Computed example of a mutant assay.
Amino acid sequence: MIVQDGRVQGPPLALTMGEPAGIGGEIAAKAWWAVRAAGPAFFLIGDPALVKDAPVALIEVPEQAAAAFPQALPVLPLPLAAPVLPGVLNPANAPAVIASIEQAVAFALAGRAGGVVTNPIQKSVLTAAGFPHPGHTEFLGELAGDGVPPVMMLACPGLRVVPVTVHLSLRAALATLTTDLIVEHGRIVAAALARDFGLARPRLAIAGLNPHAGEAGTMGREDIEVVAPAIEALRASGIEARGPYPPDTLFTPRARATYDCVLGMYHDQVLIPIKTLDMDGGVNVTLGLKIVRTSPDHGTALDIAGRGQADAGSLVAALRMAAEIAETRGKATRP
């Protein structure tokens, strides 16, 4: 157990290495400086050489992280196959990137880590090395799925959003969207908001697919024939779901006060608003896992890697949110 600010907390969080040529090492160091006094405690699984601007304490097991954390960033070493040049991708290091994720998940499943926080990966270089998954979310679903498909949520103070279709072209997203898929996501999101965020009766706002939510069918009938039946099914199962709402007015301050999460029909429909609202403080949360998992709401930033310019705000927010979710889950299981 970890004692911080006089409170007993759970195991430290496991932070994955992410793309070695990106900003993962830099923001890990900056995040440690930001939270080392008050927590949450975490340890990095990766090559210690990636950490340039913080003291490092090499550890052999997660249980050693707590004692080291106030003085140095704990690092569980995972060597790379090839030297790292900032901003230059090397598929030879892809196996270590994948192994970092696998180790973090294994620690969390065993209760030796309170949750997993993932540094950004470069999907193209992992794909070139034979990685079969579109991204983190799908891989984590394979490693730590809880019997339901993993769902990606983006969250910041004042807004939570979930895209029903994710890493697909817009044409493919439209072909993939079904009433059943919306209902499935709505149920997973409602359950996660209760379990992970402590909301007894979550309020879901469902975005329409077409401009003006179809304008009574004059701009497309999908909102009438696909989206509306999903909302009816969610309400019939006891979930407070409303809509479909015109997406262009769904993210105003007044509208945001009326719901706990928005379900959007495709990726950019909900990710553009949240990244516009809080790019530096947004957090990617994977719902439907046995473990807690969060991630910064940005990519590897290869263009500024090694320059000391990276902002660690989103990683700090991801660490804090992971700790909060772990604490909420813990309260639900304690008598």
Results as ranks from 00 to 15, higher is better:
residue 228 A to Q: 14
residue 45 I to V: 15
residue 229 P to S: 09
residue 155 A to R: 07
residue 62 P to N: 06
residue 213 A to T: 12
residue 13 L to F: 03
residue 146 D to P: 02
residue 335 P to Y: 09
residue 115 G to I: 03
residue 277 L to R: 13
residue 17 M to N: 04
residue 298 H to I: 00
residue 9 Q to E: 15
residue 111 G to W: 13
residue 11 P to M: 11
residue 279 M to I: 14
residue 214 G to C: 13
residue 71 Q to V: 07
residue 57 A to S: 15
residue 166 V to Y: 06
residue 224 I to C: 06
residue 234 L to A: 11
residue 30 K to P: 02
residue 331 K to N: 14
residue 100 S to E: 07
residue 90 N to L: 00
residue 239 I to Q: 11
residue 128 A to R: 09
residue 36 R to N: 12
residue 306 G to I: 02
residue 74 P to Y: 08
residue 84 V to P: 00
residue 168 L to S: 06
residue 11 P to A: 15
residue 7 R to I: 11
residue 269 Q to S: 03
residue 122 Q to E: 14
residue 140 L to D: 01
residue 152 M to H: 04
residue 6 G to D: 07
residue 154 L to F: 15
residue 143 L to F: 13
residue 5 D to M: 13
residue 199 L to W: 04
residue 122 Q to N: 15
residue 31 A to S: 15
residue 271 L to F: 02
residue 293 R to K: 10
residue 213 A to K: 11
residue 188 I to D: 01
residue 62 P to I: 05
residue 305 A to N: 02
residue 145 G to I: 02
residue 304 I to S: 03
residue 134 P to R: 08
residue 165 T to F: 10
residue 22 G to A: 06
residue 168 L to W: 01
residue 230 A to G: 11
residue 52 K to H: 14
residue 273 P to W: 07
residue 62 P to T: 06
residue 294 T to K: 01
residue 31 A to D: 08
residue 281 G to I: 05
residue 12 P to H: 05
residue 318 A to M: 04
residue 156 C to G: 08
residue 140 L to G: 02
residue 291 I to M: 05
residue 297 D to Q: 07
residue 264 G to C: 09
residue 47 D to R: 01
residue 28 A to M: 09
residue 72 A to F: 09
residue 192 A to F: 01
residue 56 V to Y: 08
residue 290 K to Y: 00
residue 259 Y to T: 07
residue 70 P to S: 13
residue 122 Q to K: 08
residue 81 A to E: 02
residue 325 I to Y: 04
residue 66 A to I: 02
residue 223 D to G: 14
residue 164 V to C: 12
residue 90 N to Y: 00
residue 299 G to P: 05
residue 154 L to C: 09
residue 236 A to N: 07
residue 222 E to T: 12
residue 38 A to C: 12
residue 190 A to P: 10
residue 205 A to M: 14
residue 283 V to K: 09
residue 201 R to K: 15
residue 51 V to K: 00
residue 143 L to K: 13
residue 92 A to V: 00
residue 222 E to F: 08
residue 16 T to I: 09
residue 277 L to V: 04
residue 147 G to A: 12
residue 149 P to E: 11
residue 86 P to W: 03
